[in-house]
Nucleic acid binder design. Structure first.
Lengths: 186, 186
DNA sequence: ACCTGAACACCGTTCAAGT
DNA sequence: ACCTGAACACCGTTCAAGT
């Protein structure tokens, strides 16, 4: 009945996926592990750190792409990220907030930065990367929220036809690719 | 000592701005009004409804622009929205989550939809509007979070040079304007 | 190193009852 | 219509003490 940090993270991710973020409490997780809530503070300084580890675990399991044309690499990273977020209940919200608070979840940013750097975006790369992340996180949180609301029946199961993710992503990447073309023409 | 719904909303907005979202609790708000927490449930069904009203109040106070070229109108709506979110502590998070949960805060979406419709975006308008909102909300939440963290001293007061909001917005709008041009050329 | 026991200072929400 | 009083079922976190 003794756990290591990684055991706790794995269990937390299961609780998240099974019951949602609202039910991922220190007390609930303790119960799930057969341990007092205070025991968790031996492994994590606080709940935020736990959530940061959960976010990183989600991202570590993602099949990050390689060896592509940089434009495709950018789009692929975004798609892989989205799929990873949607693979766990409330995954988008957890990862987005950990990243926003600067507590971790930096892998997607790094991936985008590399791809954009390869494309010669120069000092525009950081803004472009963050803009892409804002879109992906925002879209994924929205989609996951509505899926959840529809599942509970709180909302008329709207058939937002087959996800407009690719369309929206296309708009953002078009702007970025255009900026690069303009920049290299100067 | 008797309040109407709007009095409660106004006070809630003040508590939010003065102490932040984490301290905007039903109990705290009750104390602030000199009233038991249970009294608030006469005015609002639950805390989410209260927050929805607060979000709408923030947006109602915004100076929504009119009479511009549609491209400028789109950019202006985004800038006005951003300023409104940053005008109150944790304003971005409150408005973004209310909108995401479908409980209100729909004014910005309506404004963008109208401007984009004027521009002839056709059935691309809804995706474009949501994409813009994802950017604005994501960027504002980020900025507000980092401002807060820097104020508390939790983070090295990073001088993210004069906000890259306009640059990022430029990337997204460029993609949208390009899509419209391509579409009208077909 | 990892956990228990017990406490502290909170939450949102409900509901009968008051004026 | 608006509020009180009292309760229910929870939170995150700390800390001395155990093994």
């Amino acid at each position: 009945m003794r756990y290591r940090r990684e055991d706790v993270v794995a269990r937390a991710l299961r609780v998240l996926d099974d019951y949602g973020l609202a039910d991922l409490t220190m007390r609930r997780l303790g119960t799930e592990l057969g341990v007092r809530p205070s025991a968790l503070y031996h492994h994590f300084a606080n709940k935020q750190s736990l959530l940061a580890a959960v976010a990183d675990e989600i991202l570590d399991r993602a099949p990050w792409p390689v060896h592509e044309e940089w434009e495709q690499q950018v789009a692929l990273v975004c798609s892989v990220l989205r799929d990873s977020l949607l693979a766990y209940r409330d995954g988008a919200e957890v990862v987005a907030s950990v990243w926003s608070f600067g507590l971790g979840a930096s892998r997607p940013y790094d991936e985008l930065l590399r791809a954009l750097g390869k494309g010669g975006l120069g000092d525009l790369a950081p803004v472009a990367a963050r803009t892409l992340l804002h879109f992906v996180y925002g879209h994924a949180v929205d989609e996951q929220t509505h899926l959840q609301a529809a599942a509970v029946g709180a909302i008329p199961d709207d058939v937002r036809e087959e996800s407009d993710f690719e369309t929206g992503l296309g708009l953002v990447t078009a702007g970025i690719f255009l900026a690069r073309a303009v920049r290299s023409a100067e």
